[in-house]
């Protein structure tokens, strides 16, 4: 059995895996880039000398 021969419907299978991988990659990129940006903003704010609110849930 040749695992790289996907039969007559190879296009559909590859398209499926491709779409899934791109969506998951998009989610991962969203999480990572978001984190980076937020850390940057947090550092900037802390450099300006703004103290982190004690007990963050106070805002609720």
């Amino acid at each position: 059995m040749d695992p790289f021969d996907l039969g007559p419907h190879a296009g559909f299978i590859i398209a499926c895996y491709f779409i899934t991988i791109s969506v998951v990659a998009g989610l991962i990129a969203w999480v990572v880039l978001d984190r980076r940006q937020l850390n940057k903003a947090l550092n900037e704010l802390e450099e300006q000398g703004i103290k982190r609110a004690r007990g963050n849930q106070a805002q609720s």
Partner: peptide
């Protein structure tokens, strides 16, 4: 990860 980001986002919001 997304939850951590959201917590950070709210922290940034309060600090701003």
């Amino acid at each position: 990860r997304a939850m951590q980001n959201e917590v950070l986002r709210r922290r940034v919001r309060t600090m701003r």
